[in-house]
Design a binder for these strands. Structure first.
Length: 582
RNA sequence: GGAGGCGUGGUGUAGUCGGCCUAACACGCAUGCCUGUCACGCAUGAGAUCACGGGUUCGAAUCCCGUCGCCUCCGCCA
């Protein structure tokens, strides 16, 4: 006799009078003395088993406790009139057992899986296997599986090859902090876990693989967030002999495919926006298009006023809050919100039946207020917030106010608002290091028409880099790569790298490029983030089976941990200032 | 590195402006009763060094200092 002939959710009226076997965990026991009900849960759902004292299995069934593992053979019967349960798929029937096997007993669990949602996250991670018994959490992993299946078939059909690249690689400068792995055979030397398979996939293009993809684990030793784990999964893609349009078109097709396959959602074409427009219209390089209309640039008007604060600021940006009449207290909160973000202040303006009210009446006459109102296209009942300053602060602050307003006032639209952001800057100035750094990475192709600026005005140079944004979250980032060595040289010298440094850090790649590098480009998607958004989850922990805490620990395995001195000795490593116990 | 929130039986919380706390409630657990429940019901019971360390006080879950842990955000994450 097998452990199981049917899944819980498949126990339906069509099986009435048949003898079947189900297996799973005891979710709940309801003991009525003369009648006992047991809900058995498997990964599909619940099914009710019922027995009365005349049933030879009554005593066994009555003895089970939550989370016992059972296999139950019995007859499917219709539930009595009015006794159905609409909340479960098998709710119109139940099983009368003729064999109840307790396969495994369970201690009283620290929490019941179905109540785990309200349990402290630390507890949930420590007993992750109990947490994962929740049907709702399991559904996230089913979704993840459907997405992966869809992805692989898409790539396979499009002629992409799944190629694995090393997890033990070389530490490269730039980018995130590396996780290091000491080498035993080469004492004092270290591998680095890859932040991305970037170099390898470019080498595969030089190798003539043409179309590569990989579902790759990558590692970044930076501080964590709800949407950031130290190790996560990328859908890594690289293609040769393609231009930007072709990459964008294919990758957009891929996203549409997985939404269709995994969620039955038909996505419309993704709108495009340049980085500059994104910053000026939404104050962010990842605009959330659900949060209402764009910011309004009132700089030209602001420069005409006598009021120095506005006149001298490079930019004055407005956030339009439609049909919003904030209280005095709320206005103070908004002012504080803007200040916390680094704005020197916040001007507000509301348009009412009897005219405009404004926090800066002292400095802005009513005629000017009318002008602003007209330019911002205010209607009666609207509120406008104005932020002034020098680029890019006012846009960023206004963008944050726009988002926070939509959140606080429940104005966030629903739906999947995808967006391509293009023409990212090639370089950015690092205040910390006091030098120019690559915004994406040093192999990113500058835009043809901006190449002459590389030496004279590097931060004005735009690149062939692009992001996919969904509902204000960055899902993917990619670029065309440089394949001509003279362009690469220009970039390196703009970054202030000496020939020695270049050879030391990127020599192997540059050498490869001397043997015939095809034009190529690619992109990498954050798979976990995609699944998180598709599942409607608030944290990556909901779509990763064994995630880390915000401090990078795993409470289940208790990783990281100390290791034996002999292990360290083998590696030639001495630990400084080790915590005595832990 | 910085800011905020949280830490009280197995779980979730109340108590936190010092004494009414011999720490309350719900769920869970145990025992008993109950033949149509599905968050079953009823009764009885067990179960807490109030995160840890130090201090103030006649008296600390409660006030002060420090430490640890979890969560969120900023920095950081090409």
């Amino acid at each position: 006799m097998s452990f199981r002939t049917h899944w819980a959710d498949n126990v339906q009226e069509s099986l009435i009078t048949q003898t079947i076997t189900i297996a799973g965990w005891v979710q709940r026991r309801r003991d009525h003395g003369g009648l006992v009900f047991v809900d058995v849960r498997d990964r599909t759902g619940l099914v009710q088993v019922v027995a009365d004292p005349r049933n030879p299995m009554f005593k066994v069934l009555d003895s089970v406790r939550p989370e016992f593992v059972v296999s139950i053979t019995g007859t499917v019967q219709q539930r009595p009139e009015g006794m159905g349960n609409r909340d479960i798929a098998s709710g119109s029937v139940e099983i009368v057992p003729n064999l109840v096997k307790v396969l495994s007993e369970s201690k009283t669990p620290p929490f019941m899986p179905q109540e785990a949602e309200s349990v402290d996250e630390l507890m949930r991670l420590k007993y992750r296997y109990l947490d994962l018994r929740r049907t709702s959490l399991f559904h996230n992993f089913e979704l993840r599986d459907r997405v992966l299946f869809s992805l692989r078939s898409f790539f396979h059909e499009q002629g992409f090859l799944d190629v694995e690249t090393p997890a033990l690689a070389r530490s490269t400068p730039e980018g995130a902090r590396d996780f290091l792995v000491p080498s035993r055979v080469q004492p004092g030397q270290f591998y680095a876990l890859p932040q991305s398979p970037q170099i390898f996939k470019q080498l595969l293009m030089v190798a003539g693989f043409e179309r590569y993809y990989q579902i790759a684990k990558v590692f970044r030793d930076e501080d964590l967030r709800a949407d950031r784990q130290p190790e996560f999964t990328q859908i890594d893609v690289e293609m040769s002999f393609v231009d930007r349009e072709e990459i964008l078109r294919l990758m957009e097709a891929m996203m549409k495919q997985i939404f269709w396959d995994a969620l039955d959602v038909r996505l419309p074409d993704f709108p495009r926006m340049t980085y500059k427009d994104a910053m000026h219209q939404y104050g962010s390089d990842k605009p959330d298009l659900r949060a209402g209309e764009a910011l309004v640039d009132l700089s030209d008007l602001a420069h005409q006023t006598e009021w120095n604060v506005l006149r001298q600021a490079t930019y004055t940006v407005g956030v339009r809050c439609r049909q919003y009449a904030p209280s005095r207290k709320q206005l103070d909160e908004w002012t504080q919100f803007a200040k916390d973000l680094g704005s020197r202040g916040l001007v507000w303006m509301t348009k009412a039946e009897d005219g405009i009210r404004c926090s800066a009446t002292k400095w802005l006459d009513s005629e000017f207020q009318e002008k602003i109102s007209a330019t911002a296209n205010l209607e009666i009942g609207d509120t406008l917030f104005l932020v002034s300053g020098d680029d890019p602060r006012p846009f960023e602050v206004a963008g944050q106010i726009r988002l926070e307003f939509a959140r606080r006032e429940n104005r966030m639209e629903s739906g999947w608002r995808f967006l391509w952001v293009t023409e990212f800057p090639l370089f950015e100035w690092s205040e910390e290091e006091q030098r120019l750094t690559s915004a994406h990475h040093p192999f990113t192709m500058p835009m043809e028409e901006d190449r002459s600026l590389i030496a004279v005005d590097p931060t004005a140079v735009r690149s062939e880099a692009y992001d996919v944004v969904l509902n204000g979250i960055e899902l993917a980032s990619g670029s065309l790569r440089i394949y001509q060595s003279e362009v690469q040289q220009n970039i390196f010298s703009a970054l202030g790298l000496s020939d020695t440094e270049i050879q030391e850090k990127f020599g192997f790649l540059l050498q490869a490029f001397q043997y015939g590098a095809p034009p190529h480009g690619g992109i990498a998607f954050g798979l976990d983030r995609i699944v998180m958004l598709m599942a409607g989850a608030k944290s990556l922990r909901e779509v990763i089976a064994f995630p880390k805490t915000a401090r990078g620990t795993d409470p289940l395995m208790e990783a990281p941990s100390t290791v034996a001195d002999s292990q360290l000795a083998e590696l030639g490593i001495q630990v400084q200032g080790r915590h005595p116990e832990k």
